[in-house]
Design a protein around this nucleic acid. Structure first.
Length: 494
RNA sequence: GGGCCGCUAGCUCAGUCGGUAGAGCACCGGACUUUUAAUCCGGGUGUCGCGGGUUCGAAUCCCGCGCGGCUCACCA
């Protein structure tokens, strides 16, 4: 067996990273590039295991990261991980010869190698590859976290997601599921005739939602720009333009707090359908979510954080007013503004001096009802005060044709029959501008061009927005939004 | 931003009343030709998050700071 002649001092090195770095010279001295190049694989680990009946005795080549090494003197076992899974490799001294077998003993856990050999099943029944040759493809210079407990330190997991992905298979599964969910959203909408479009991320006016924006600066134009807080207003301009059915899956930026449910940048899908209304949006929402669940999980009955949730359509529909009345016994819309404020205060809710009954209703819903709605539910007919872009009800101008889909105690989607009356829209913006003047820096900004677009004529339109990250959390049973975002925002170290 | 909790070896974690820092995995050396958390023998590899303070002596007690987690506020 070969000795580590060029790196005789490896044994004296305390630091494992130093030991691994010293091995670079070992591989070079054997004519092997420790950072190799192209390698042709014939199979994935999964293909060999699934196709064992046909592959037994056949020669295959695979590549991947060494995740375990079990040496038995003149025989060794390695576990090789690739995207599809893991497979065991069995190496024998008498099959490889002194030199090759000696080199194999210098492989470290974490190294990426290519392997060729014959498929067989061990005495203990494990499908394996009997090694006939191997190639160092990439020498790993840092030790991996422990094989049994994995990597738990969430700080390292989020900052160094690549390590998390190497050692925690369930993390990789979560992100693969995320990709499937996004694909399912696309296929569902494409099939229904929606056009996927891309609208600007940098806005002169940040509109379409109630949120604080990030500000950036364009040097050549010498102007401040906002990162978008919604895709809504541009998508509706496209409906004005006659595109009729559009959607955008896009990154949204909101300059607000970070929590288990909030990341400063997140992904939404917004869709708009001409000649539709919010009832159509309810049908789309429940079927879109059910489709995503089926594609990603194969089922519409799921468990989220210990709660059984049935996403099978149709979902119950209830007005906000009725939901609040059932839960609290208070019928806000039958009260005067003053009585409504009193009712809120008796519930322990802090409402502003001139809060309307609609604002009180909304407050009572958010504080007293929303968190208790575990099964998917459509909460309909939001007050106009909190819905500046939604069409008002023809039978009650204090309410709008707006709903939110709620599930697991939180908002999943928000939708309405779009306000297409430019005169009304201008008044709503003006009311928001007054709120801004009063210091509400989350109130909507006046967008003159959007009103101009409406003046050209927006057909009656239904629109819906859904938080993709929240949907992924729900379908992957993730407690934190950081578990479904590959690289969540973290404060820099030091 | 407020409150609570955490930070010790590469990783997962112990660490008593303030008395020279310790276990598993990983790693290094040795044995072992079908193991699989391989096994057996030997080896502890450390800026106890950082900076001050108290003390003869601090991982441990006190103060400040940093980063993270949970939570409240805000929001999707």
């Amino acid at each position: 067996m070969d000795e580590l002649e060029d790196t005789a001092d490896v044994a004296t090195m305390v630091d494992e990273a130093d030991q691994r770095r010293a091995k670079l010279d070992y591989w070079r001295s054997r004519g092997a590039d420790p950072f190799g190049s192209r390698f042709v694989r014939t199979h994935s680990s999964r293909q060999i295991i699934d196709g064992f009946a046909d592959l037994e005795g056949k020669h295959v080549s695979i590549a991947g990261r060494v995740m375990a090494f079990r040496g038995h003197g003149k025989a060794s076992f390695l576990d090789i991980a690739d995207l599809a899974g893991r497979i065991q490799v069995y190496a024998r001294h008498d099959a490889l010869g002194d030199e090759q077998y000696g080199m194999l003993q210098q492989v470290d856990i974490g190294d990426i190698i290519g392997v060729a050999g014959e498929v067989f099943r061990t005495r203990r029944g494990e499908i394996s590859v009997a090694l006939s040759s191997f190639t160092m493809l990439s020498k790993s210079l840092r030790p991996l976290p422990e094989k049994w407990h994995g990597l738990k330190d969430v700080d390292i997991r989020y900052r160094q997601r690549y390590v998390d992905l190497i050692v925690n298979p369930e993390v990789r599964d979560t992100f693969i599921t995320r990709t499937r969910i996004v694909s399912a959203i696309r296929s569902f909408l494409d099939k229904r005739g929606f056009l996927e479009v891309e609208t600007p991320s940098m806005h002169a006016i940040a509109g379409g939602a109630t949120a604080r924006p990030f500000i950036t600066h364009h040097n050549a134009l010498d102007m401040d720009l906002y990162l978008r807080i919604a895709t809504e207003l541009h998508l509706k301009r496209l409906i004005v333009g006659g595109l009729e059915r559009v959607y955008e899956i896009g990154r949204i930026f909101r300059n607000e707090g970070i929590s288990t449910r909030h990341n400063p940048e997140f992904t939404s899908v917004e869709l708009y359908q001409a000649y539709a209304d919010y009832h159509d949006m309810m049908e789309i929402t429940e079927n879109l979510v059910a489709h995503a669940a089926r594609e990603a999980l194969g089922a519409t009955r799921i468990t989220y954080q210990g709660s059984a949730i049935d996403l099978t359509p149709p979902w119950p529909r209830i007005t906000m007013s009725e939901a609040v009345r059932q839960r609290t016994g208070v019928d806000f819309m039958a009260m005067s503004h003053e009585e409504a404020r009193g009712a809120c205060r008796r519930m322990g809710l802090d409402v502003p001096e001139h809060a309307t009954r609609g604002a009180c209703l909304s407050e009572a819903y958010e504080e007293k009802v929303e968190a208790s709605l575990i099964q998917p539910t459509f909460i309909m007919d939001y007050p106009i005060e909190v819905s500046p872009l939604a069409k008002k009800r023809s039978d009650n101008p204090e309410l709008t044709y707006r709903f939110e889909a709620v599930c697991a105690g939180r908002e999943l989607a928000n939708a309405f029959s779009e306000l297409n009356d430019p005169i009304d829209q201008r008044e709503r913006f003006l009311a928001q501008a007054v709120a801004r003047e009063r210091g509400d820096d989350e109130a909507h900004m006046m967008d003159e061009d959007f009103v101009t677009a409406l003046e050209y004529g927006l057909p009656p339109t239904g629109g819906m927005g859904l938080g993709v990250d929240r949907l992924v959390m729900l379908l992957t049973d993730s407690a934190s939004i950081r578990d479904v975002i590959l690289f969540p925002l973290m404060r820099p170290r030091e």
